[in-house]
C-alpha cells in the first residue's frame, strides 16, 4: 500500500481520529453516570463537612443531606440552611479563580454571619503538594469556628503552620503557596458577601 500519497494520508488521519474519539466517547458514556454521582456526592460531603454535620458513610451523607439540609434560593442565589439545637447554619457553594484554575468551595456560617462554621474544598487545580494543600485538614481546620473580622471578612496572613486562635479573623497561608492562599481568601470573602446578599443584608 502506498502510505505516502496525499489521499491516503488524509483518509488515514481522518479514520484514525474518528476511531479513537469514538472509543473515548463510548468509555465516557459508560462512566458518565458514575462520574456525575461522584460529583454530586463530593458536593454533598463538602457541604456537610463545612456545616460540621458528622456522617460515617456516603449513603449516610446523602440521607442526612436530603433529610436535614434545606436548599433555598433568594436574590437569585442558591444556598443551604440547617437547624442545629435551635441555631441556624447557612451554607453556600462558591467558586472563584485560584492560581491555576477554578477553585470550588463549600462554606458555612452561623445565623448572624459573625462566625464561620467551616470550609471544605470541592474541586481545585492547584499545584499538588503546594497550593493543593488547601484541601488538607490542618488548613481547613483554621476556618472552623473562626470569628469573622471587620466587615465580616477573613484575612489570610503570612505563611505558617496553621493559626489556632479562632478569635482573630485570621488564617495562616500555606508555605510555598502564598498566591493560592491569597486567592482562596478572596474566594472565601466573596462567598461570605454572596451569602450576606442572599440573606438580605448589604453586600
Amino acid at each position: 500500500m502506498n502510505t505516502k500519497g496525499k489521499v491516503y494520508t488524509v483518509v488515514f488521519t481522518f479514520v484514525a481520529s474518528f476511531i479513537f474519539i469514538l472509543l473515548l466517547a463510548l468509555v465516557d458514556t459508560l462512566v458518565a453516570d458514575q462520574i456525575s454521582r461522584n460529583e454530586e456526592l463530593s458536593r454533598v460531603r463538602a457541604l456537610l463537612n463545612a456545616m460540621n454535620i458528622p456522617y460515617a458513610t456516603d449513603t449516610e451523607a446523602l440521607r442526612l443531606f436530603h433529610k436535614e439540609v434545606t436548599a433555598l434560593t433568594s436574590n437569585g442565589i442558591d444556598y443551604y440552611r440547617y437547624e442545629r439545637n435551635g441555631e441556624t447554619v447557612y451554607g453556600l457553594i462558591h467558586r472563584g479563580d485560584g492560581l491555576w484554575g477554578t477553585i470550588t468551595i463549600a462554606v458555612a456560617v452561623n445565623q448572624d454571619l459573625t462566625r464561620m462554621i467551616g470550609l471544605d474544598v470541592i474541586s481545585q487545580n492547584e499545584t499538588p503538594g503546594l497550593g493543593a494543600r488547601i484541601d488538607e485538614s490542618w488548613f481547613k481546620a483554621q476556618f472552623q469556628g473562626e470569628r469573622l473580622g471587620a466587615g465580616g471578612r477573613l484575612t489570610v496572613g503570612e505563611p505558617g503552620p496553621g493559626d489556632t486562635d479562632h478569635g482573630n479573623g485570621k488564617v495562616d497561608a500555606i508555605t510555598g503557596a502564598s498566591l493560592t492562599s491569597r486567592q482562596l481568601g478572596i474566594i472565601v470573602n466573596d462567598a461570605l458577601a454572596t451569602l450576606r446578599r442572599a440573606l438580605g443584608g448589604a453586600g
Binding site: 473515548l24 465516557d28 462512566v31 458514575q34 462520574i35 463530593s42 481545585q124 499538588p128 493543593a132 484541601d135
Partner: peptide
Amino acid sequence: FFVIIINITLKAFLPQISRALGP
C-alpha cells in the same frame, strides 16, 4: 487517547486520587 482513558477512569472509580492529582 490513553491519558484521557486514565483521567476518566480515575474520576469514575478513584475520585479521591483524581482530586489529589488535579491537572
